[in-house]
Design a protein around this nucleic acid. Structure first.
Length: 651
RNA sequence: GCACCCAUAGCUCAACUGGAUAGAGCAUCGGUCUACGGAACCGAAGGUUAGAGGUUCGAAUCCUCUUGGGUGUACCA
């Protein structure tokens, strides 16, 4: 039962014959922001002033007169400049909540399905996963779950980076620097070491020749800065120039510092320095290995086949912990054979042309073209992405393809989507579900103090450890009267810790950057999953203690009554579950569902505080409150599960 | 240089996409309860929504400019 759409339907009927396009106005009916204005509000009349040429209050009165809604609401009230305020009838709320509680989907109805392909997570194989991979993975997974629950047909696809330069790096690294014993003992760690080693040396070789120039640039910038400052002192108009100069100076200094870091990382270790000396132009050598792999070189292909499962098993272990599954994992390599024919086809059709030796698609509105084949004949990720669209259209016939990828690739996707349209894919809705950066507490991209990235597994471990300490603190458990075996404690810590990481991510508006702070997110108070999980556990505990056996089958016999306002407030929120789901996928913001669940949990805490259940004044009231506990549990458990977060019966 | 994004309470974030007195959580201060597990509940304080104009019944939200930050920018992904 979607209350909002029910109300909108009634308004649409009332507006029919009154205005030109009734449906377009009903979007302006929303949950009341302030409960003093009722439960829902319609902000329609004001915007109809121009169309109807009447004062908004009069329009509102007209609408209300035509509105048939008394089976759901109390008589509507008109307020302020023409708001129509609605308050739902108590008997309606009571009936609906019982009805929902008897349903395993809490009354959420399946809708006309659309076909979705959701492209998310997409880590680079052979590079260790880090905190940056959390967002795509967790947001994508939540969208898959919610859309599926609503009845859509969803294909989840992990577009693994399994064919890129990083393989050239570990192939070269393996051929030249492998520690055989280390590889035999722990291949994942050894590959990761090789990757870092090669990356460091390339970084060094790239940075070293630039050092002198960067030093000079800093000196120049300093001079310019001083000159500009001197000028600004006498001439206020030159102030902007001085600021600009300060900015340039800072940029030059930062560049120099990062170069120096790369250089000293190698020079501080003689072994690394020797490698750098003995393997000049490593970047080109690595590119050569990559090119050989792409060309089908037997040795490199064998190595690729050897390394791939190793890296994938590591990634899979992260997915297993996070309980994330994909329908398909078609990595870049999967599309490899399709690139050449695709580019040829585009060239023949005249859609791709040669420019400066590269094969390009020029797109109106973009300065630079989309390059689909490099001068040296190699293909790029743009090529793969186009081939991927083609493949998905042929095999999945989606109405929508969502790319859950960080915002820095915004321009790439605008180009890709324009190109896809240009080559004939006009009937698919392509959307870049972009998200912000994960920051450290210094407001900069999340890294260790020394600048290296932190492994994802480590962060998961940390969250679980902290959760264990907080939730399974012996004193706390004793005070709560909870006696549990070690195994259960670990299970709880796992559910709470991993939930905390997911929830911290999902509760933020995806387009904002957010600060990653394990300490805070597992602090287990405030806007965290632990708080919600805790409220769920408390509701479970009450039901367990009652002698009546409430269940989905029996709850129909527990009619709901409102003795306190806390009960009505909670029930109203529970019935907005379906609205929250629809709203969260409307523009693909899982954060809408996350904050809905938090406010339900908070509302339950109020109910819990003010409405004794087991010792309620009458048996009827006790049964009503049990039904409310049951319904709350259902919504919290279901809702969290749609975010990929679990619950436990006690914690 | 050009393009896109951002700036909201001391801190971390919301604000249903133009609605009524901008809300939560931390932190601070004060209060409640011999009720179902004190990770509880209630209250106070905290804001010229970076600044200046504009659009209209109405702006944190849309437009213009200014300031400060981030990101991307022809052969990496």
């Amino acid at each position: 039962m979607q209350i909002l759409s029910l109300i909108r339907d009634r308004f649409e009927k009332a507006l029919t014959g009154l205005v030109v396009d009734p449906a377009s106005h009903t979007q302006r009916i929303t949950v009341a922001r302030d409960s003093r204005h009722g439960d829902y509000q319609a902000n329609i009349a004001m915007s109809l002033k121009a169309e109807m040429g009447l004062p908004p209050q009069q329009i509102a009165a007209e609408i209300v007169a035509r509105l048939q809604i008394d089976d759901i609401c109390l008589p509507p009230e008109i307020a302020g400049p023409g708001f129509i305020n609605l308050k739902l009838r108590d008997d309606f709320l009571a009936t609906q909540v019982t009805l929902s509680a008897t349903d395993s989907r809490f009354g959420v109805e399946a809708i006309v399905p659309r076909r979705y392909v959701i492209d998310y997570s997409a880590p680079n194989v052979a590079k260790p996963m880090h905190v940056g991979h959390i967002r795509s993975t967790v947001i994508g997974d939540a969208l898959v779950r919610i859309l599926r629950f609503l009845g859509h047909r969803v294909v989840s696809d992990n577009h693994l980076g399994d064919w890129g330069t990083q393989f050239g790096m570990i192939i070269y690294g393996y051929k030249n620097f492998v520690n055989e014993n280390g590889f035999a003992e722990n291949p994942v760690a050894e590959l990761s070491r090789l990757y870092r080693l090669v990356q460091q040396v390339i970084g060094y070789q790239d940075a070293y020749p630039k050092l002198a120039k960067a030093e000079a640039a800093v000196l120049d910038a300093q001079q310019l800065y001083q000159a500009a400052n001197a000028k600004a002192a006498s001439d206020p108009k030159a102030k902007a120039g001085a600021k600009q100069a300060a900015k340039s100076l800072r940029a030059a200094e930062e560049l120099l510092e990062s170069l120096q870091q790369k250089v000293s990382a190698i020079e501080s270790e003689p072994a690394l320095e020797a490698i750098a000396q003995n393997h000049q132009n490593l970047e080109q050598k690595v590119q050569f290995e990559t090119a050989k792999l792409h060309a089908g070189d037997t040795t490199n292909l064998e190595l690729w086949n050897k390394f791939l499962p190793i890296s994938i098993s590591e990634i899979d272990s992260v997915y297993r912990r996070l309980n994330i599954n994909f329908d398909y994992t078609y990595g870049e390599s999967f599309y490899h054979e399709m690139l050449e024919p695709l580019v040829s086809k585009l060239v023949v059709a005249g859609m791709a042309v040669e420019s400066e030796g590269a094969t390009c698609i020029f797109l109106p509105g973009f300065e630079a073209p989309m390059i689909v084949r490099k001068r040296d004949g190699a293909f790029l990720y743009a090529t793969t992405d186009l081939a991927t669209i083609e493949y998905r259209m042929q095999h999945f016939q989606p109405d929508v393809i969502l790319y859950v990828v960080d915002h820095r690739q915004g321009e790439h996707f605008s180009k890709l989507f324009a190109a896809a349209k240009a080559i004939g894919y006009e009937n698919v809705d392509l959307q870049h579900i972009s998200f912000g950066t994960v920051l450290g507490s210094d407001g900069k991209p999340f890294k260790t103090r020394s600048g290296s990235v932190i492994g994802l597994e480590y962060l998961l471990d940390e969250a679980v450890d902290r959760a264990y300490q907080a939730v399974c603190d012996p004193q706390r458990l004793q005070k709560a009267g909870l006696n549990m075996p070690e195994e259960e404690k670990r299970h709880i810590a796992n559910t709470v810790g991993l939930g905390a990481i997911k929830f911290a991510d999902l509760s933020h508006n995806r387009t904002s950057d957010y600060e990653f702070n394990t300490e805070k997110m597992v602090q287990l108070e405030g806007n965290t999953s632990a708080y919600i999980q805790y409220m769920y556990a408390r509701a479970q505990s009450i039901m367990k203690k009652s002698d009546s056996q409430i269940s989905r089958e029996s709850v129909a016999g527990y009619s709901v009554i409102f003795a306190e306002s806390a009960e009505r407030d909670l029930v109203l929120q529970l019935l907005q579950f379906e609205d929250a789901l629809h709203q969260s996928v409307e523009a693909y913001y899982p954060s809408v569902l996350a904050s809905y669940l938090y406010s339900v949990a908070k509302q339950f805490a109020v109910f819990f505080d003010q409405c004794p259940v087991l010792i309620a004044s009458t048996e009827q009231l006790k049964r009503s409150r049990l039904a409310i506990c049951f319904s709350t549990s259902e919504v919290l458990r279901l809702g969290l599960s749609l975010l990929g977060i679990g619950t436990v019966d006690r914690m």
